[in-house]
Nucleic acid binder design. Structure first.
Lengths: 171, 171
DNA sequence: AATGAAAGGTCGGCAAC
DNA sequence: GTTGCCGACCTTTCATT
């Protein structure tokens, strides 16, 4: 069970703040038809429950000359795991790190100013283990806002061969 | 050549606003030792040049029950490209789309409430072409702030066999 | 849990230097 | 880029529903 379940009003607040984090409680209340004190109380509740975790300005990397985005999938050598043997400050180009299930142990999202720079980065990271790189050509969208989970859909629209008609399962 | 090159003061502003987008111009000026009108002018300049592109609240997906993050790498069938034949609203679980160079044409970052939900999503997206999925187990960090590009590093520390000593190239 | 009013502080914009 | 000022807006508190 989750600590707190946002209601529709909370989701309206989350929506507005994800669109523009700089609006005042007054303006926010105006938009969602709630008085400023109520808005403030809800925002603090959402913050308190760890749902609202912060407010950030977005800086367009391409506008400051960091045009190249790529992913690096890494399979760290035993004892040379990037996450355990390297300081993140060593790799400012790495903007995102995921630990993965599957063939690779780690996926890095990197942002650099040029392919030449990327080549140097790959050499540096390659000391930790074999890797695969994927260049991003364009990003139709990113950072889509968090919304309430849609109602669960059935896995398939019709019955499949592995679905017993009497719906007996091992649940 | 880029339209506008942020100076150190601009970067200080970008830093503070990426840390907390909700501070006032007053507070911002206090932190970077600049008067509020100057701060306001710089912020508007950065916005005007497309460097500051927006301000967003961060909502923790896990805190609202969307615990599962995964990537789907897709190689769209000819004429059934996901980006051209599907409405993004059809796939609210897809929070990020990248067009790729390499083996796959598209990488999707998806966020769902459960593995069961993920299975259904994969079935729906699978109609567009063959795909590979990668589960994210954890994310040590994401959304690292944009910073000034570090000085370019040499590709290798020493000369390599393909580097001619007289530095003649085809540039 | 939300509202309304009132108090006090803060903010943002403008003009002048 | 800075200072000073003014009007407007904002946040908070508290009593009330």
């Amino acid at each position: 069970m989750r600590a707190y379940e946002p209601d529709d009003t909370d989701w309206a607040i989350l929506h507005e703040l994800q669109l523009d984090a700089r609006i005042s409680f007054n303006e926010l209340g105006r938009r969602i038809h709630l008085s400023p004190p109520s808005v403030a109380e809800r925002v603090r509740r959402l913050e308190g429950h760890g749902i609202l975790t912060g407010y950030a300005a977005h800086v367009d990397p391409a506008a400051v000359g960091q045009d190249v985005t790529a992913y690096i999938n890494l399979r760290c050598d035993p004892g040379r795991c990037l996450l355990k043997t390297a300081d993140p400050e060593e790799f400012p180009e790495v903007v995102e790190i995921h630990k993965l299930a599957g063939r690779h142990c780690t996926m890095l999202r990197v942002r650099v100013a040029s392919i030449a720079h990327f080549e140097g980065l790959v050499e540096r990271i390659g000391t930790h283990g074999p890797l695969e790189t994927t260049m991003v050509m364009s990003t139709p969208f990113t950072r889509r806002e968090v919304r309430p989970a849609p109602p669960r859909r059935p896995v398939t629209t019709g019955d499949a061969w592995w679905q017993a008609k009497d719906a007996s399962g091992d649940a």
